[in-house]
Nucleic acid binder design. Structure first.
Lengths: 138, 138
DNA sequence: CCTTGACCCTGTAGTTGCTACAGGGTGCAT
DNA sequence: ATGCACCCTGTAGCAACTACAGGGTCAAGG
C-alpha cells in the first residue's frame, strides 16, 4: 500500500520528474519519506495524481487543475464553479479548433498552389514573401 | 528608407523585443547601427521580417521558419523541400485539430452530465476522480 | 562481503517563443 | 535645459515540463 515515486509514476502514466515537479509547485503535498529518504506514497496521493493527470489530459492548464482540486475538496459547495471552469475551458478549446481550422485551409490552399519547379517559382515561398511593393510607405 | 526598430515593428506587427529576440537567435542578421547606436533597417530586413511573421502566423515553429528562409534564399533549388515542410506542418495542424476535437466531445459530454447540486454529486469531479477501486474517499 | 544495476535524491539548466523589467543613453521639441 | 518618447543591454519570467550532473540506497548474485 506504499508506493515509491517510480511506482506512482507507472500507475498514473507520469514521469518521475513530473511528480517531483508537481510537488515543487505545491500541486502535490510533500509525501512521507522512508528511512532512506525515498518518497513514500499511499492511495490518497495516487488518487490525487490520477485526478491531476485526467484533468491535464483534458487540456486543463495547471492553475485550473489547482482550482478543480480545491473545489473537489469541499464536497458541499455548489458545483456551479466547477461547471464554469469546464465551460470556460471548452470555449477555449473551441476557439483553438477554429483557429487551427482556418490555418489548415490556408495551408492546404498554399500546398495546392505548389506545382513543383524551383524555389524561385514556388507559390508557397511567394505567399510568404512580402507584397512586392518596392516604394513602400511606412 | 531606413527604419528604426520601432518603425520596423509597427510595419510588421512585431514587438520591438521580439525583433531583438529574433536577432539574438540569429533569425535576423545584426543590422547596421546609427551613430547613436540605434539599429537601422532597410527594405531587405522589412521583407525578411514580414516573411517570418507570415510563416509564424501560419503556425510554423521558428526552426521551420529558419528552414523556409534558407530554402527561399536559393531560388534555383527544387521546391520539393518547401513543399515537404509545409506538408509536415499541415499534418501536424491536422493532428492537433483531431486531438482538440476529441477533447471537445469529452468536455461537452462532461458538461452535459452536470445537473447542478453540490460538488459531492458533480459528475465532472466524479469523472476526473480515479476509478473507485476500494472504499475510497476523495 | 562485495559489487552491480536499478532505482532514488537534490539542484540546476534547458526547451519554445516570446515578454517584461531595470537601469541607463539618444534625439527632438519646447 | 528639460521633458518625453524612443532606443540600448542584460537578465529574469511565463507554461509545463524534461534532462542532466553528481551523488545515495537497496535487493540480488557471485
Amino acid at each position: 500500500m506504499a508506493f515509491t515515486i517510480g511506482e506512482l509514476g507507472k500507475a498514473t502514466g507520469t514521469k518521475v520528474e513530473t511528480i517531483r515537479y508537481y510537488e515543487r509547485i505545491g500541486l502535490l503535498a510533500k509525501p512521507e519519506r522512508t528511512s532512506g529518504n525515498y518518497r513514500s506514497y499511499g492511495e490518497a496521493e495516487l488518487g490525487r495524481l490520477s485526478f491531476i493527470r485526467r484533468a491535464r489530459d483534458l487540456g486543463f492548464p495547471l492553475d485550473r487543475v489547482r482550482a478543480l482540486l480545491s473545489l473537489s475538496d469541499d464536497r458541499t459547495r455548489d458545483c456551479a464553479m466547477v461547471d464554469a471552469l469546464a465551460r470556460d475551458h471548452l470555449a477555449e478549446v473551441e476557439r483553438k479548433i477554429a483557429d487551427l481550422t482556418a490555418l489548415r485551409s490556408e495551408l492546404s490552399a498554399l500546398l495546392d498552389s505548389c506545382e513543383g519547379g524551383t524555389v524561385g517559382d514556388c507559390r508557397i515561398i511567394e505567399a510568404l514573401a512580402p507584397p512586392a511593393t518596392s516604394g513602400e510607405t511606412l
